[in-house]
């Protein structure tokens, strides 16, 4: 014989009001989840696009700088003063663009596959 009445069928006024309030809050949440969802999506998209921008910038610049420095270093060792620097910088530029292409057009990893499916 539990003397505590079950909250469900408790006839008193405040319990009714409390349940009503809880119901409206739940309804409210149910009704419009979209706006904050969209705002979250927008910030995620800008975050991801900016991170892509940062990566592209540094991969591109690093590619060229590494090419130039390697060329300059080989010149020092082999004594072929300006030639290797120019050739290696050209290769560095190609490597830079290749890095950018690999990053932008074909992001690696399984996540890339569904990326491909989502925006061909």
């Amino acid at each position: 014989m539990s003397d505590k009445p079950n909250p469900q069928d408790d006839p008193s006024e405040e319990a009714m009001k409390a349940r009503l309030a809880a119901l409206t809050v739940a309804l409210e949440k149910q009704k419009d989840p979209k706006p904050d969802q969209e705002a979250l999506e927008a910030t995620q998209r800008t975050g991801r696009a900016m991170s892509l921008g940062f990566r592209v910038l540094s991969e591109f610049v690093a590619g060229i700088i590494v090419g130039a420095v390697m060329g300059w270093q080989f010149d020092e060792w082999l004594g072929t003063k300006p030639v290797l620097l120019i050739v290696m910088t050209a290769f560095g530029t190609i490597a830079g663009f290749w890095n950018v292409y690999r990053l932008a057009a074909a992001p690696t990893g399984p996540q890339a596959r569904d990326d491909k499916r989502s925006n061909p």
Binding site: A62, G63, I65, G92, A95, G96, W98
Partner: peptide
């Protein structure tokens, strides 16, 4: 040989770009 050289350059540029990006920002 050219492709391999380009791949080597892009592989060596990875730690450089990884560290210089964070540092510069």
């Amino acid at each position: 040989p050219f492709i391999v050289l380009i791949e080597v350059i892009s592989f060596v540029s990875r730690p450089i770009s990884l560290s210089v990006r964070l540092f510069a920002n």
